[in-house]
Write a protein that binds this DNA or RNA. Structure first.
Ligand code: FES
Ligand code: FES
Lengths: 144, 144
DNA sequence: TTTATTTCGGATAAAATTATCCTATTTATA
DNA sequence: TATAAATAGGATAATTTTATCCGAAATAAA
């Protein structure tokens, strides 16, 4: 569904959000341990998320990654996915035609249409705060 | 969503089905031209589909790939996808946890649940005949 | 039985994705 | 100002996916 990079990016963002609520910045080391991902690779993904303004980085001593508390509830899953995988997952053709086009549909276009629309809708309406709260309350998990 | 191999496998199966209705066997060359895919790679995928009993192959002169006419309407998209990509697309965890488990859910488990179920349902209820007929009647397309 | 045609299958190769390592740069603080 | 702590970013490696090539095996027909 998503690339490994995107999976790591989503989980990392959630972990950063949780810590940001407590005013704590986190490092790639902490993040990769908490989400069970390769450290250096995760660091690269964090850089990409910073470039796309999903998370903030603070360089130097006492630095780390954080998200503005006030932004956590407005950051949508779709922003993270788009920053890493682009929008092909719900905009591209399910069978790889150059573009998904109502006027030149592939054989599964109609069957995929609703599924892709729901996926898009879900990603665009799910925010980091909801996901972070579930982790905090022990309802969901970031690894294993 | 699907791997390239799976996309090719689905399109190839549809093209073989169309020709099988007319009692015609087709070669990897014809198939790859019709679905716009790399020939040798497509041939490998066809071998896999044969092994999984999705399509039949006939070796030697006048051979080629075909599907029993009577089977076309009962072959489901899910069989093709499973033969090539497995079932991780709708059974695996969307965030890469070792397994998707109701009792140990990842942060997006609930949000993905319905989407994955619909995808599974769609794949299991879409058969090759429906897809082939749309191509035949010019309603949908296998390439570009 | 020979030949032409076709799939099968193994060996590579190319490209993309995933992963690692090392140095440069930035920054707080002693 | 010097030092330690941290992200940034380039180079490289490993792995997986995608793709190519070629000879072996099977088969129909001459
Ligand atoms: S054209 Fe293939 S999904 Fe729309
Ligand atoms: S545990 Fe992640 S989708 Fe079910």
């Amino acid at each position: 569904m998503f690339s490994k990079a995107c999976e790591y990016g989503i989980k990392a963002s959630i972990f950063i959000a949780i810590n940001s609520y407590e005013g704590k910045r986190v490092s790639p080391k902490e993040i990769s341990e908490e989400i069970d991902s390769p450290r250096a690779f995760t660091a690269k993904i964090l850089q990409a998320l910073v470039k796309h303004n999903v998370i903030n980085s603070v360089k130097g001593a006492h630095g780390g990654f954080e998200i503005d508390k006030k932004d956590i509830s407005s950051i949508k899953l779709s922003q993270i996915v788009n920053a890493i995988d682009g929008d092909k997952i719900y905009s591209g053709c399910g069978l790889g035609l150059h573009r998904c086009d109502e006027n030149h549909p592939c054989p599964v276009h109609d069957k995929f249409k609703t599924i892709k629309a729901e996926l898009k809708d879900m990603l665009e309406h799910t925010n980091l705060e909801q996901l972070a709260l579930d982790i905090k309350s022990g309802v969901s998990f970031l690894k294993i």
